[in-house]
């Protein structure tokens, strides 16, 4: 995925997968390993876990470069995550790719209205879709 807003030379060291479906998470993991063989991957089952992680001491050093975010999750949904991650992203902005089973045009427009969201991908996705 190429995007005019992102820096093409920017290296992707750390990738977060925020996805409540274990099978899809597994598939995303394989896709990230294909797209960014050198990257490190951290997995979360809902929107709450990554928000907590950002509040931990020293979290500043462990900022992700890329987040693959599901929208429909039961605990803290992707939408809530997008709202709450705002105050944490003062210096190092992670690129967020929304990965969802929704094919709703309204969802797409709403997601892309967040400046940190660099793409709206409908499942299933391919390795080339997540290259920013």
């Amino acid at each position: 995925m190429s995007n005019a807003n992102s820096d093409p030379s920017r290296p992707v060291h750390l990738v977060w997968l925020v996805e409540d479906d274990p099978i899809y998470r597994m598939m995303e993991r394989k896709l990230v390993q294909t797209a960014y063989p050198q990257s490190h991957i951290q997995e979360f089952e809902n929107g709450q876990q990554p928000l907590k992680k950002l509040e931990e001491p020293g979290a500043h050093e462990e900022r992700p470069d890329l987040i693959l975010l599901d929208l429909n999750m039961s605990v803290v949904s992707g939408w809530d995550f997008l709202e709450k991650i705002h105050p944490f992203t003062h210096s190092k902005q992670p690129d967020i790719l929304v990965v969802t089973s929704s094919i709703d045009a309204f969802d797409r427009e709403k997601a892309l209205s967040y400046p940190t969201v660099k793409g709206f991908l409908s499942k299933p996705i391919k390795a080339e879709d997540i290259i920013i």
Partner: peptide, 18 residues
């Protein structure tokens, strides 16, 4: 259909491709 059923269908497609 578009939100709930589509999810496992997308998983099946993804798994097949992998």
């Amino acid at each position: 259909i578009s939100h709930i059923i589509r999810r496992p269908v997308a998983n099946l497609i993804g798994l097949s491709e992998m």
